[in-house]
Amino acid sequence: MAYNVLIVDDSTPMRAVIKKVVKASGFNLGGIFEASNGREALDLLEREWLDLVLTDYNMPEMNGLELLDEMKKNESLMSIPVVMITTEGSKQRVEEFLDKGAMAYIKKPFSPEEIKQKLNRIMGETSDEDKQGSFDIGNEELDF
């Protein structure tokens, strides 16, 4: 089963790095899509079949949390797992991400090897699920 991944970050270099790490994860990927803010991401989510969203929190126009809120309000998008990638590491903020439905969060700075291992774990644990399933592995905190 090939998975389509959406990377949302306003920084082109950061998107390029995350894309490279996702590609190197060894996971069976269909396509990797990119958006530079939450608004663009929502447009893509309406048009493409996507299985995982990796989003930055701090972005212009629509931030990662607002994107997550919009996805949870939309029946066709609410079950797509969202991983928040953020510099914001306060306990309260992380709880907010998870309470609002993020599957996990990854704190910047991250090393390529670390994010690769974590993604492999997330994708590996979900690879036995139906592609249209929930990716239900609970709210896992990826703090490194």
Binding site: S11, T12, M14, N58, G89, S90, K91, Q92, R93
Partner: peptide, 27 residues
Amino acid sequence: KETVKEITNMITGNAFSLYDPEAVFNL
């Protein structure tokens, strides 16, 4: 330019997390 902005964002956010993990700073 985007990389310089990203570094600024990461250093600032991470510094506040290290300074006080309980506090919420809006960047």
